[in-house]
Design a protein around this nucleic acid. Structure first.
Lengths: 265, 265
DNA sequence: CACGCTTGTTCAATCCACTGAACAACCACC
DNA sequence: GGTGGTTGTTCAGTGGATTGAACAAGCGTG
């Protein structure tokens, strides 16, 4: 590691936050979350974020006192309080509770792997997972992120946005992340799919993120302000995937989406 | 609640953090997490935390920019990034991954509801849940907290601590939280149980948090520094709970605990 | 409608958190 | 042991974040 890791900031004062210490503290949390090992030393952080060591030390002490991070010898890592806070966020989403109930009772979905996700910047983030099918256990977990272009939920949520927003996120010469030979390569492909999704009302992901696995997704209608867009998806093995089954799943997903979108039931 | 909510701080400079803005930002997150509705306005926060409105405004703007909180009109609530960060924390715990694998293959446990928890101040916090028994779905979720004295895991983790630490947390005249008629009432009762747990190597919670539900728990041996103590528990309905079954469960829990405590396998 | 009481945002003066350099402790290598 | 590179901590000066008061906008109530 001669030239070490890429310092991400170096713009530093570009934003000029009204409370720089907080912004930097958040950057520390991000850095720890993205670090492969999950552990960084004071110097690592200072270097990577371009913050003087002395200031970094102060930040870390404050973060540790708040239990947002943990110190173990010279290494810092994320703290348990983050799990609490994340859980507090999720527990407030009534949609998640109803999601579980619905899945258990749905004729087809109750035997499948169903997930609910939310758009989060240029990614989606999984909020909950129902597993009626213990045979197929997903590697993805609650809180995991996926690029929009690589998941059925991502595409279906993208299709909900206005065209100019999509254009801003995916200019024609953008390079899309690729995970399998079937992953979408160009913005044009993506936009064509978006158009199709808008017509048919659901999205299909056909081995674009994992070979052998297909995914169907529908959007949850956002009745007014409330919050950011939610999406639902079913995951299945391509081998055991039929047209009729897909139709059933989409039908039930849409029912669930409708009941999530109209809270009274 | 005529006199409204209790302003929690008012000690203010007691701690004198090296980065007050960060400490206060953390307090904001805590307040939002504990607020019953999950939403507070700028003035609410300013009042409750004893921070001037103008400063609170700055904090909130910085927190919002970091997506640690979300603004909806005048209301602020926790942000999605917290789910990411919490998930990042959990994904680093190898124990959680192994926990799932083990549960699936264990003869008895694979059909039960098993959880792994961690001590967190004067509470426990649930890190993961395996549900082999869809009939009995727990209301508790990942990230939820429970008082030490009210859960089997809590008691078993308490038993791992030194006596003087226990004494500090539970002086003789302490008032324990009560959730059912069978909840422990006095520190003396709790300490008697701790002694018993140390002898037998596992803890039993007999309808102390929920009527009709029993819980068994064992500690995960912490091989040296690593991290805070972990505990495992099985939850069952009292109605369908037998001595022989309990013995089997404790045996498998101990196997799991052992394999978690000795990472190589 | 005017009133009282909220709310959140603006702005200049002050104070304190941030910084940089100097420090001590450590490790690896020769 | 000496030496060059680390590491994290300490501390006094200073520049910018914090703040209080003043502002504007909203909302019930009589």
């Amino acid at each position: 590691m001669a030239d070490s890791r890429t310092p991400r900031s170096s713009e530093g004062l570009g934003s000029s936050s009204p409370a720089p210490a907080v912004t930097r503290a958040a950057a520390v949390l991000d850095a720890l979350a993205e670090a492969p090992s999950g552990r960084l030393t004071l110097s690592d952080l200072s270097r990577e974020l371009g913050i003087p060591k002395s200031s970094t030390s102060n930040l870390l002490m404050a973060l540790e006192e708040a239990r947002l991070i943990t110190r173990e010898g010279a290494d810092f890592s994320l703290g348990r309080k983050l799990v609490e806070l994340g859980a507090a966020y999720l527990s407030r989403l009534d949609e998640v509770q109803e999601f579980y109930k619905f899945c258990e009772q749905a004729p087809t979905l109750s035997g499948e792997t169903v997930r609910i996700a939310m758009i989060d910047g240029d990614h989606i983030i999984y909020l909950a997972r129902y597993e009626g099918h213990p045979a197929v256990r997903l590697t993805s977990n609650i809180g995991d992120k996926m690029p929009l272009s690589l998941s059925a939920v991502g595409k279906v949520l993208l299709a909900q946005l206005h065209d100019h927003d999509i254009e801003a996120m995916f200019p024609d010469d953008v390079e899309l992340p690729v995970m399998t030979p079937k992953s979408l390569r160009s913005a044009a492909e993506l936009k064509a799919q978006v158009a199709a999704i808008r017509k048919q009302g659901y999205a299909l992901e056909d081995e674009e993120s994992t070979l052998g696995v297909v995914c169907l997704a529908v959007p949850v209608p956002t009745h007014g302000a409330h919050g950011p867009s939610l999406g639902l998806s079913v995951t299945a093995l391509k081998a055991t995937f039929s047209e009729e089954q897909a139709a059933l799943m989409v039908k039930e997903l849409k029912e669930l989406a409708h009941s999530l979108g109209n809270p009274m039931g």
